[in-house]
Nucleic acid binder design. Structure first.
Length: 549
DNA sequence: TGAAGCGCGG
């Protein structure tokens, strides 16, 4: 090989060097007249994209090289990875007009882009296109389809793609296991995990993380323990991602002692693992511990990132202690994270929940970039302070700024209606959410709506609303009705709600306490005693030890 | 001499 080409290849392997080194290399390639060779053009596009210089990448693509499928793929990917979806898709369309056909890599890239911009229509088109191109049984294309469908909530479609492939490879198995896990079907992902092993494919860390993802409450913790056992046997517990997923799994199952045990067994926990533990403590009510671990992580020299800062701020928000929260605010400022949109949203939430809505508004006003999360935080803040009209003004602003309201936006607005007693506005908003914005109501929305009705003298309407829902009805919804009955002193309905809660076999004691207190308050001591006794009986429950693997 | 599909924390 000519020495200069050798030099270029040596430089190409050092791609993580600076942008200026990349530009020098580019100049060298132009000088040696290699820039029309699609290999070198592809390499330059890739390297410029790594350095975030999309303009130079695009110039390389536009300037005269022969366009191989590699070159097309590299420029489409560069735009897609930078979330410049418009450019990515217009290039893809241009490519379809040329003699070069897209291959499995091209489709994998545009399919992923569709899921990232929640473009169901585009996804179906790309899926169809890949079939026409003869990629129906391709596993690279297939696994990206499985992931994309499951990200858009269509697990059924994902499984159709999966079962259409005769011999799934490792990534294909993992994609489907994660798809089921992400959708909460842990039983199906477990079944697949076992099928995968029977077919002779050895699981890796991805499979285990996918499996652990679906285990999200204490009812499935014994499964999680089984998976944990498997991780120990196969030494996957020392894998950083598996370790974090285990910490998260135990945290979600409200079993912080296990979560901590796993955490302390990881030799070098990264920020994600720390954050999983910290969020676990914060969400299971042990806020002081969350703050303590935040201090510890700063002490061992870790530099919190925006996500971790946001989760410690959430712990402070729960404490409703502005002193703690503003200390963390100071820390965030010193770390230079004050313009991060996630951190700012957490600050808004913390200040408003600590009673300092004005400070939250100030953070909102000066933040350089606002997204739907920051609007949601402020709307919730206005709602909590009884300022429903301000909350609705913010909603208008969201629409004016062409942002898309999400589930949390409506949840916050319904909560605002509840605090201000705006029954008709709340009902209207609930309808708009479904009809105009196509958002399916979730438990939290029903809880807000039931409370809004129940607390404003419309207990029966709330009851009929719950009656109209398909089974199984989340216990939180009946719980909301029960607390309204408690507040209004309606025993008749309270008993119905309590009965349904007991039927649903929820372990939460607070409902029974509420009912028992209601009876006691009315002097119905026998009834109160019966409820108390049933609590004592129900309490003795042992976690069955089962290994599913 | 080339690219790529799957993972944890808000």
């Amino acid at each position: 090989m000519v020495p200069i080409i050798q030099l270029i290849h040596k430089e190409l392997s050092k791609i993580y060097q600076s942008l200026s080194a990349t530009k020098k290399l580019h100049a060298l390639i132009i000088k040696t007249q290699l820039s029309s060779d699609p290999f070198y053009a592809t390499q330059m596009v890739r390297i410029y994209a790594i350095h975030g210089d999309l303009c130079s990448a695009r110039n390389v693509f536009d300037e005269g090289s022969i366009r191989s499928v590699y070159l097309w793929n590299s420029i489409i990917r560069a735009h897609a990875q930078a979330h410049q979806f418009y450019d990515a898709f217009s290039l893809f369309r241009k490519m379809l007009e040329t003699d070069i056909s897209p291959d499995n890599f091209t489709y994998a890239c545009v399919i992923r882009a569709c899921s990232e911009r929640f473009d169901m229509h585009g996804l179906k088109l790309c899926h169809a296109g890949s079939i026409v191109s003869g990629l129906k049984s391709d596993s690279i294309c297939g696994s990206s389809l499985v992931t994309a469908y499951s990200k858009l909530g269509l697990v059924e479609e994902a499984s159709k793609v999966f079962y259409g492939i005769r011999e799934p490879d490792l990534v294909m198995w993992n994609s489907m296991i994660s798809a089921y896990g992400n959708s909460g079907f842990w039983d199906k992902s477990l079944e697949l995990f076992s099928n995968m092993q029977n077919s002779g494919t050895k699981p890796d860390g991805y499979a285990l993380v996918g499996l652990l993802l679906g285990l999200s409450d204490s009812t499935s913790m014994y499964i999680g323990q089984g998976v944990h056992g498997f991780c120990l046997k196969t030494s996957f517990d020392s894998n950083a991602h598996v370790g974090s997923a285990l910490v998260t799994m135990y945290s979600r199952c409200k079993s912080m002692s296990y979560a901590y045990k796993v955490f302390s067994g990881i030799s070098q926990p990264d920020l994600v693992t720390w954050s999983a533990l910290l969020t676990g403590y914060s969400q299971s009510g042990e806020r002081e511990k969350a703050l303590l671990f935040f201090k510890k992580l700063v002490l061992v020299g870790k530099k919190p990132d925006p996500v971790l800062s946001a989760s410690v701020l959430a712990a402070a928000a729960q404490m409703a202690n502005v002193k703690v929260g503003s200390e963390i605010h100071g820390y965030v400022l010193r770390q230079g994270l004050e313009s991060d949109v996630m951190v700012c949203s957490a600050l808004i939430d913390m200040y408003s929940k600590s009673g300092f809505l004005g400070l939250g508004i100030r953070v909102f006003d000066i933040m350089p970039e606002k997204n739907i999360v920051s609007y949601n935080s402020l709307i919730l803040g206005f709602g909590l302070h009884g300022l429903a009209s301000h909350a609705f003004q913010m909603f208008e602003e969201i629409l004016e700024n062409r942002l898309v309201p999400d589930e949390s936006t409506f949840s916050a607005l319904l909560c605002a209606c509840g605090h201000a007693g705006l029954v008709e506005d709340g009902k209207f908003l609930f309808r708009r959410m479904k009809e105009e914005f196509g958002i399916q109501a979730r438990t939290e929305h029903y809880v807000h709506l039931v409370k809004l009705l129940g607390m404003n003298g419309k207990l029966e309407e709330a009851y009929y609303l719950i009656q109209s829902l398909p089974e199984p009805i989340e216990h939180g919804i009946w719980g909301a009705l029960l607390s309204c009955c408690d507040a209004c002193g309606n025993f008749e309905l309270a008993e119905v709600a309590a009965e349904r809660l007991i039927e649903s076999n929820t372990k939460r004691a607070s409902y029974k306490v509420m009912l028992s207190n209601m009876y006691a308050g009315d002097g119905r001591w026998d009834d109160a005693r019966k409820v108390r006794e049933s609590m004592r009986e129900g309490k003795v429950r042992k976690m069955p030890g089962v290994s599913w693997i």
